[in-house]
Design a protein around this nucleic acid. Structure first.
Lengths: 231, 231
DNA sequence: AATTGAACATACTACCGAGTATGTTGTCAA
DNA sequence: TTGACAACATACTCGGTAGTATGTTCAATT
């Protein structure tokens, strides 16, 4: 419960989603796990999954292994929990604009913006999601983790399909144009996801500053997709 | 010297650069190291640096540790050698368009295309370069590796600056427009680099197919930077 | 033919890290 | 007050991996 300054932002983000109408996190994240998930996400981002030891996470928590293994069965279990929370952040982020009745182009813009902002504001979790996808794209895992990993990828694919649908609608409306849909989607996500890698919170940074970054990424993507610039 | 089908492409790429006028690879890569570097690059891409054991590389080589440690002092040494070769591929790729006298916009297009194509055709090496940058952005390494890692980052920064210069020229010419130059460069490189992650060689694929992918990425980037579409 | 050294293979050590087994503390119910 | 259980901490085991020490082969000198 005692969150120091460096963890406060993420703890707030988790609390925000947990407080949202969705029942997703309520089922997954219990009280005693929040701090562990936050610190684990930071470790996984800082050193990568393979290089992060459970002792690293425990050290950042100011406690020992015992606490972690009390709540999580294994290192992989902890990792997947982090990644799944990350995906839930994303669903929560695009939820409103997804339900919108606006034209496809406007929905696409809003979803892209919300997604990108989620990358920035829940960066450590998103970095873990990324690593999970990377591990999957290769294919070197044990059968136990396989199942859990496949579930994560399935979630990710479903999420991706939401964007795909809106993209196709916007394309049908003539608002954007691209050659290969698969490549276009890859490039869009890579651009929107890129803050995962290069974003660093500045001291004194405001929420508006972060929105500004997300806006630039979104503009870049829409222009890249051949959208006519808005006024 | 006996390269099987799966390694032939990369071996050809190394031979191509080694045969080029530049003296870069001649100094770095010796005969007995080529196969090792190729297999190491593949392993690092497949499992990541941390998860790759020297025995993994040896197994892929069809030999044992002894061979690797005969040429490379440590695992880190091998990794940096791979990454440095990767950077040399990139310099070689953009060399021609860099020296061009054409307008900045045209040079930028050529460089972006060449860079992207290099990502595709030397993918495993570029993936290692990426990992090196990632490790650096965090900052958890031993002092010995630090020096070597800093050298790699310096090379990478210098390479990035080449693009920065041309981008600014093109911007001054009014050919492109963007808000924050740093973000614009990040988004450009992320898009051009993205094949590192999602490209997979298809059976029966031609060099033209790869060029087509690079072209789509380049078009996306230039459009993202606000360039007026060419005829 | 003997020597030398490069290019490996084999056999080992030392350590680190995941997972476990067990102890300790506090709290709450009965 | 006393179990009883949750929430940890402590102290171990044990497998994997980087690195080393030492053999072995072969080809080129001399």
């Amino acid at each position: 419960m005692t969150a120091n300054a460096s963890t406060q932002g993420i703890a707030r983000a988790i609390a925000g989603v947990a407080a949202s109408p969705g029942t997703l996190t309520a089922a997954l994240v219990e009280e005693g796990q929040i701090d562990i998930l936050n610190m684990a996400a930071q470790c996984f981002m800082a050193r990568g999954y393979a290089s992060t030891s459970i002792d690293d996470v425990a050290r950042r928590l100011g406690s020992t292994k015992g606490r972690i293994y009390h709540f999580f069965a294994s290192k992989a279990d902890l990792f997947f929990a982090v990644a799944e929370v990350g995906m839930q952040f994303n669903y929560a982020a695009i939820d409103a604009s997804l339900k919108s009745e606006a034209p496809a182009m406007e929905r696409l813009r809003d979803m892209a913006f919300a997604h990108c902002l989620s990358m920035i504001e829940t960066q450590p979790f998103q970095h873990s999601v990324w690593q999970g996808v990377e591990i999957h794209l290769r294919g070197s895992t044990t059968p136990e983790q396989r199942e859990r990993l496949n579930a994560l990828i399935e979630t990710r694919d479903h999420y991706s399909a939401l964007f795909r649908k809106v993209m196709e609608e916007a394309r049908a409306e003539g608002a954007i144009h691209y050659d290969d849909p698969g490549i276009a989607r890859q490039l869009m996500f890579m651009t929107l996801n890129s803050p995962i890698f290069w974003y660093k919170p500045r001291p004194g940074e405001t929420a508006e500053d972060r929105k500004n970054i997300a806006r630039q990424c979104t503009d870049f993507v829409l222009a890249g997709l051949g959208a006519t610039p808005t006024a």
